[in-house]
Design a protein around this nucleic acid. Sequence first.
DNA 1: GCTTATGGATACTGATACTATCCATCACAG
DNA 2: CTGTGATGGATAGTATCAGTATCCATAAGC
Lengths: 210, 210
Amino acid sequence: MRIGELSKATDVPVPTIKYYLREGLLPAGELSSPNQASYGDTHVRRLRLIRALIELAQVPVATVKEILESLDSDTEPLHEQIGRAHRALTPTRRLSATDEARTAATTQVTGLIADRGWSVDPEAPALATLIDTVAALRTLGQDNLVAHLDTYADAVERFTQFEIDAVTTNPTRDQLAESVVIGTILGETLIASLRLLAQESISADRWKNR
Amino acid sequence: MRIGELSKATDVPVPTIKYYLREGLLPAGELSSPNQASYGDTHVRRLRLIRALIELAQVPVATVKEILESLDSDTEPLHEQIGRAHRALTPTRRLSATDEARTAATTQVTGLIADRGWSVDPEAPALATLIDTVAALRTLGQDNLVAHLDTYADAVERFTQFEIDAVTTNPTRDQLAESVVIGTILGETLIASLRLLAQESISADRWKNR
DNA sequence: GCTTATGGATACTGATACTATCCATCACAG
DNA sequence: CTGTGATGGATAGTATCAGTATCCATAAGC
């Protein structure tokens, strides 16, 4: 398959494919001569994955690169691969909220994690985001939402459990890792849009008049 | 309160505040003379909301503007306000996945919505995103995840229900609308980080060895 | 009266995600 | 075997975004 065919197969413009090649998101094709390379099925699948992450999940190109690198390093233990992807996915440096809200949020969140017996690396970036978010919700006066953090955690625990089950059926380690990463990222988009639809429907019933 | 104090109170640099004023995210302060304005508590709260949306939820500035405009138009019915915010929040133009996957995804999603009796505007942007996401997951070979769309919907329905309940306690219509919007957007960040933590914890237990 | 801050306007910056252009091959149809 | 079009690789250009920086005439506060 030449680049033009790859482009047709995935509906990605040739210059964009070249860009992804330059950036190292897509491995180079096999060169048969200095200016002739052939691409295979792996390239088609990889390219589709790249586009799904970028267009659907809005993951920045640099982050996609990190994630793919972590997927391709099959020497790493699975848990480490997942951790790398998580780290790449969670933007660093956030700040908002007052100091009181921050400390309150920190105790609430650490309490929640302890209660549920979750084993969480205190350095996990998602932990910082969670604390910041709870703190922000408090500062914005949404305490009644924050009060039900546990209900959120219940629901989340439920589908995370089954996601892991669903994904564990994958035969090989590589496929497993890929499934986890795709599930993590596109799963988020899936949940977000389901949530929007549910909200729209429930709110329509509830507030017809206001 | 002058701009410097507003800056100190919210930890947002003065030039950034000026930028938000220019962009119309933040209403102008009350002018006491041609180059002296005073800002009040509304500005502090509004600014904190802006930063939470931008930093935590990664909402683009232009979208924040749309959302705030919709919040400020208290003539609109509540459901319309929410719809506007949803529309602003969901990026248009996505494409990926093969045609077979698209049609399969469309039937599955419309089936799900019918089964649950959700009343969803067929033009709702979240609907398109959901279909695209399901289609992408199929194209990427993650059928076992997609097979459990219903389980996701169950969990999502559960916390959406209670979110709406929690938010309904708000006394005034304006506060209700603000709560819905904040809950929708920061709730997503909340759920996403909870999910990451749950995943990390469960996957650590499950795949210690792989 | 002197330093600092302010409102308002305009200009500049760095990052991101592509697009466009060039050019020296290559493939291959006629 | 020659002309047309695609290709790999390199380099340059573009649009958008989210601020920063600079200027200036005025106002505040010591």
